[in-house]
Write a protein that binds this DNA or RNA. Structure first.
Lengths: 163, 163
DNA sequence: CCTAACTGGTTTCATTTGTAACCATCGATA
DNA sequence: TATCGATGGTTACAAATGAAACCAGTTAGG
């Protein structure tokens, strides 16, 4: 630690541009906005709709609650996104045999087609983003995010034996 | 690189939980929401209002456009946040001598008091967040974010000679 | 000068969001 | 089996947001 410009202590002022919550938010917002243009322009999807599509495409079938948990969405967002995708006939609801409150959601053929179309675009976007960084920097951001996720108690620390 | 679980290539599916834009957004959203509780509960501020307060507290005086640039807000957000803070008598507008379109914004005594009250809370929040990480992890996330900011062209790479 | 293009900032309107209330159903229990 | 509390999901309403229209005021040309 040399003469750091980090000043989380003494001064009376807060340097917004170096304030982690702000930087994190601004970054995520910009990245998300840029990526959002992809699913918005190509299919007119909102973020909750994209996440729903993505979640169901990945897992095959889920209830609304599970979907919300997996993709970090409030239940009202899930509800509305599901309604819209259903309206498009991109997904269907299957009643549960035992519990009539629950519906099992799944993509239709059309929904799956859209999903399959989106996946490569998403991966390409991520790859292009990371490609702007050196290998070290890539590892840094990925690990950094992972460690914060763990610190927030969302995930378990990977068992020693992984990379 | 051992047997990574990273799969940005082959598979037909996208693992949302490992998709960087998603992880970044979810993380920033959670952190921001948690921090937001601080200025919301203590003073009923919205995020744009907090950023305005913070920006002016830090810089002393700015025009609305400058404020928007510094704190990454759309001009309508700035306009509304400024209006609200003015209504609270936390800031005042000073007309510019040469250009009557411009107003120089500055915090009033009351605004400054609120700012001074918030600063330690913000710093404490950031410190507590980082304290959940090891020194290495802290460096990782901070550098990772910085490198992405640079990659997006927002900042210059620090001249070799800094930490 | 007079107009046309531009800039700083506000307002309007449609959309998105969050909170809370709500409805239906389930499970436990008396 | 009647009731009470939890749970899955939707809806109503208010607030926050973004895009685009808008209103000065300013600058550059002709």
């Amino acid at each position: 630690m040399t003469a750091e410009s980090e000043d989380s202590g003494g001064s009376e002022i807060l340097d917004l541009e170096n304030f982690l919550p702000y930087r994190l938010y601004r970054l995520a917002d910009a990245v998300s906005r840029e990526f959002g243009a992809i699913y918005k322009d190509s299919h007119g999807l909102t973020r909750p709709e994209w996440r729903t599509l993505s979640g169901l495409g990945q897992r095959g079938t889920m209830t609304a609650t599970e979907l919300g948990a997996q993709s970090a969405m409030h239940k009202t967002k899930v509800s509305r996104a599901v309604a819209e995708l259903e309206r498009r006939r991109w997904l269907t609801r299957l009643p549960d045999e035992n519990d009539r409150r629950i519906e099992h959601l799944a993509l239709t053929k059309a929904g799956l087609a859209a999903y399959r179309e989106m996946v490569p675009l998403a991966k390409a976007f991520e790859r292009a983003l990371l490609a702007k960084l050196s290998a070290t920097e890539q590892a840094c951001i990925v690990n950094g995010v992972a460690s914060l996720e763990i610190a927030l108690g969302w995930k378990q620390r990977p068992s020693p034996g992984d990379t």
